[in-house]
Structure formats: structure tokens, C-alpha cells
């Protein structure tokens, strides 16, 4: 196999490394979007929590949430995992279905 001249080969090599970089950047972009969504939701929840703090004196979060649904005990790994595998994909597939 004859060696390609540098100006010819350089394009391909650069192309390969650019592809790698681009994929990484796409991944970063997707993760950034997700982070933004998490941030937005967190802001919403923080607001909700603050409003509730104003309304009631007692702390409902720990007592009520735990008391109502013992199955949802935070810290059970099962609960966590339920949400986990590819929630975004599942959601998109649901949208297609409905």
C-alpha cells in the first residue's frame, strides 16, 4: 500500500480527530442541556419549598413524605434506578406513541 503524501493524508487524519472531538462536544452539549433542565427543575422546587416554608411552620418534607409513602423511602436504590435507564429516550418514545 503506497503511503499517501502528507497533504493528502493530513486531511484524513485531521478528519478523524475532528470527528472524535465533535462527538465529545455533542456529548457535552447534550449533557449541558440536561443540566439546564435539572437546574430549572431545581429552581422550581426550591421556590415550592420556600413557599411552603412560609405557609406552615412545621417541616412537612421529612415527616409527611416519608409517612405517606414508605415505599418511596429515599435511599432505596431500587427507587432511584426506576427513573434511571434512559428516561429521556423513554419519554420520547412515549411521545411518539401517544
Amino acid at each position: 500500500m503506497p503511503a499517501l503524501p502528507l497533504d493528502e493524508a493530513g486531511k484524513y487524519v485531521a478528519g478523524a480527530y475532528v470527528v472524535f472531538l465533535a462527538l465529545l462536544l455533542i456529548y457535552v452539549a447534550i449533557m449541558a442541556t440536561r443540566l439546564q433542565r435539572i437546574d430549572r427543575e431545581l429552581a422550581e422546587l426550591a421556590e415550592l419549598a420556600e413557599r411552603r416554608d412560609d405557609r406552615s411552620v412545621r417541616d412537612p418534607d421529612g415527616a409527611d413524605a416519608g409517612g405517606e409513602r414508605p415505599a418511596n423511602d429515599p435511599g432505596t436504590p431500587g427507587r432511584e434506578a426506576e427513573d434511571v435507564p434512559g428516561g429521556d429516550l423513554r419519554r420520547s418514545s412515549r411521545q411518539e406513541v401517544s
Partner: peptide
């Protein structure tokens, strides 16, 4: 990275349920 993202989203969901559950009240 991915595991952390998934786990924080799951935690967020749980937090939301814990917070809203009080208002909604139907578990």
C-alpha cells in the same frame, strides 16, 4: 458523568414527589 446525571435526575424526581406529594396528596 452519565451515572451522576441519571442519579441526580432520579433524586430530583424524588424530591419533586416529596414536595408536591404534600400538596397533591394522592400517593
Amino acid at each position: 458523568f452519565e451515572l451522576a446525571a441519571k442519579s441526580s435526575r432520579a433524586r430530583l424526581g424524588r424530591l419533586r414527589r416529596a414536595l408536591e406529594g404534600d400538596d397533591v396528596g394522592v400517593a
